[in-house]
Design a protein around this nucleic acid. Structure first.
Lengths: 210, 210
DNA sequence: TTTTTTCTACTAGTTTACAGGTATTTTTTA
DNA sequence: TAAAAAATACCTGTAAACTAGTAGAAAAAA
């Protein structure tokens, strides 16, 4: 007995990539692209009315965060599997996607063949992560332990430090004592494992904290 | 009389995008995708032997800088027009591409229709920049005047400052007087129009100086 | 070859940052 | 509600950063 045809919905803001996905997936006769959308709103309107097995979801949508879309699909339509797709290999986003119910993840440099395999696999209830993604996730385990959790206030101060505002000025702005600002500053430097404000700002930008 | 068929070569490291381009361009019967490559090397091997009118070039290639590829195409094969393509709208890269002979530039969220228009237009010896790109270039004119020119030494010191290295340490490293480092530091802060090292680092990263 | 820029170095003074503590109050979470 | 985490604040001292000048030597450009 032949497998049922897998109904795939594609969400990507790049028409070129949609075309590419349609063309690539179209090679496999057991997969059918039933709809394509350039934004999340249209996707949900579609899911309300039509059956879909797999959503191929670009994480970098312009209007809404891909992770949120993923979470919403997962809570509202738990039977619909999400296959994440993005250009860049940002470990934190990949991890967030997985946390929010993505069953698989690929980079856009994926081949047609691997794409087909991934779709079938997650449709079968398994998960699929390309070799690259697996490596990224594995590597990030080590770094992850070092990713410091900053408090709200610390993030606030960090942003102001990056603006080049001095401790007395920050204190004035937040209506707290300069001594308090210094304490936050010190904690930030310690948490981030750096030695001064310059490096702190660099790290913060690298970690996308500001 | 009908126009000749435009021979297009596509260079992109994402098979998905290549598929998308082939599929999109394929809709227009007056354009033919004669070859696709995932790296620059294969492209030049092809250009040596075959005729091509337009190269659709992804700027973010993994092996080599897109700007360099553009420059090389332009100097070796001046009759071949380059149409730049990228996901993100980085003004400096777009400008560099134009400087190095790109006849047009599009973002990857381009529609099939616009893509066709762009290819025909640059094949006819005109240039083509999507509305988005034009806006980006226009906006960057103002900023451009403010981009300070740093000397070699200043850039060197800037990088070290961003590493969190202190003035005395930098002096030791470069075997110059700490007073000299201080002077460079001062000039950097003045040139960049900032008030301290933290802001300097932030600006430097934003301006992609480090 | 002159001119300009860049790199170098100095003096002197003020401000800010950073390190190492401690400790109270408030808010969150278990 | 009790315990933990976060935000607040203070003290002391040193090191570094920033401000504001000046200026000679070397390298690059006109």
């Amino acid at each position: 007995m032949r497998k049922e045809i897998v109904k795939v919905v594609v969400v990507d803001d790049h028409p070129l990539v949609i075309e590419g996905l349609k063309s690539s997936i179209g090679m496999d006769e057991t997969i059918e692209v039933t709809a394509c959308f350039e934004n999340a709103e249209d996707l949900f309107a579609h899911l309300k009315r039509k059956v879909a097995h797999v959503v191929v979801l670009d994480v970098n949508l312009p209007d809404i965060n891909g992770v949120e879309v993923c979470e919403k699909i997962n809570s509202k339509y738990p039977h619909v599997k999400v296959l994440g797709l993005s250009t860049y290999n940002d470990p934190s986003i990949i991890k967030q996607m997985v946390k929010n119910g993505a069953k698989g993840y690929l980079l856009k440099n994926v081949s047609s063949k691997e794409l087909g395999i991934a779709i079938h696999q997650i449709h079968d209830g398994l998960s699929y992560f390309s070799a690259e993604i697996q490596k990224i996730l594995a590597d990030s385990i080590f770094d992850n332990n070092r990713i410091p959790k900053l408090t709200r206030r610390e993030k606030e101060i960090l942003a102001l430090v990056a603006e080049g505002i001095t401790t007395p000025q920050i204190a004035e702005k937040l209506i707290i004592s300069p001594l308090t600002v210094e304490t936050h500053r010190r904690n930030l430097i310690q948490k981030m494992g750096v030695t001064n404000a310059a490096q702190l700002v660099k790290m913060a930008i690298e970690q996308k904290l500001i």
